[in-house]
Design a protein around this nucleic acid. Structure first.
Length: 227
DNA sequence: GCGACAG
DNA sequence: ATCTTGTCGC
């Protein structure tokens, strides 16, 4: 008989949760590589007037934060937005974009959470396990966890706690600016993750990787949806 | 039962 | 995320 091709993104909610529980066992919450030359940023933009979405991957030279490569991919939504199952919605186009990247990054910064997730398997962790590469979850808002407001100077941070576990850092990347939520994605420690996010955010609230990827997807989408 | 809830 | 109007600041 003809085996049907199963794409993880075609699973139902219950199956997706089961897959997360299985893959979460593969997450490595410790530093692995030490030589990081290229850092990648990922982002996805959606069209409200259709089911089209655009994913972008940008590669920056870690030392200079200069863009050295970028790719955008157009796709269609195949999974609804469900808190906790976000990766099943955004990863398909992101994976396609990575398949076209020539420079292999040593670290990937994701827009969303890593292990600061109900099953410790947010977007960043999912991407890290699939690509077998170090990843960091960098969210603008909280999915879960409690925390005390960090000091108001750049670099101040406080632990994000869920079920008595430290699942991330609430990190202030600029003086007096609203903090962001950093968590381990895969193959990196929380302290190293926060240090990297701070280094990648020399001037703005969000890391340059995220800003560049965000800029790219918005331009690509505006070309499809001329106002 | 009532909120909370990455993007 | 997207939509949306105005406002503030460099």
């Amino acid at each position: 008989m003809k085996p049907k091709t199963i794409h993880p993104w075609e699973l139902n909610e219950e199956e997706a949760v089961s897959l997360q529980r299985e893959l979460a066992k593969k997450v490595i919450q410790q530093d692995q590589s030490h030589d990081i030359t290229y850092v990648a940023g990922v982002d996805v933009a959606y069209s409200k007037q259709s089911d089209v979405l655009i994913a972008a991957v940008v590669i920056l030279e870690a030392a200079s934060l200069k863009l050295v490569e970028s790719v955008t991919v157009e796709d269609r939504v195949h999974f609804p937005y469900i808190p906790g199952l976000f990766s099943f919605r955004e990863l398909p186009p992101v994976i396609k974009a990575f398949e076209q990247i020539k420079i292999q990054p040593d670290l990937v910064i994701c827009d969303g959470q890593g292990i600061a997730h109900p099953r410790r398997f947010g977007l960043a962790s999912h991407l890290g396990v699939l690509l077998d590469i170090p990843t960091i979850g960098c969210g603008k808002t909280r999915l879960l966890g409690t925390y005390d407001e960090p000091g108001d100077s750049r670099g101040s941070h406080s632990p994000l706690i869920d079920n008595d576990e430290v699942v991330g850092h609430v990190l202030r990347t600029q003086d007096h600016i609203k903090p962001i939520f950093v968590s381990i994605g895969h193959k990196i420690s929380l302290n190293a993750a926060s240090a990297w996010i701070l280094k990648l955010s020399p001037q703005y609230r969000l890391p340059e990787t995220t800003r560049q990827a965000d800029h790219l997807v918005k331009i690509a989408l505006s070309r499809l949806n001329p106002s």
